[in-house]
């Protein structure tokens, strides 16, 4: 799993390259923890290269979301499968998905 960060104005784009699942979740969690320390006022979580997210991956995303309480977090380029997962788990009421 590679995670790329791109500064966009005052926001920070986080591009995940690969699936966020049990196999990658430890990497994702520690990378996101490091990224969160930059205290950006806005984060764009870019799912362009993400095919699917499993239950372990969901935990990492919710944890990041909660830790960045003061920042705006926007999920972008989310495919149908992941969007459906957010709906089923009702996280669409927590995440802002564009």
């Amino acid at each position: 799993m590679k995670i790329e960060t791109i500064q966009e104005g005052e926001g920070l784009r986080i591009v995940f390259h690969g699936n966020i699942d049990l196999a990658s979740v430890d990497d994702v969690r520690s990378e996101l923890m490091g990224i969160g320390e930059r205290n950006s006022p806005k984060y764009f979580l870019d799912f362009q290269k993400v095919d699917f997210v499993d239950s372990a991956g969901l935990g990492a995303l919710v944890t990041f979301h909660r830790a960045q309480g003061g920042s705006e977090i926007v999920f972008q380029n989310v495919n149908e499968r992941v969007r459906k997962l957010f709906q089923i788990t009702r996280l669409d009421s927590v995440f802002s998905v564009e």
Partner: peptide, 13 residues
């Protein structure tokens, strides 16, 4: 009918 999983979010649906 579903709500949020437990243990991470402060306020659950």
């Amino acid at each position: 009918k579903r709500g949020h999983f437990l243990g991470i979010l402060d306020n659950v649906l």
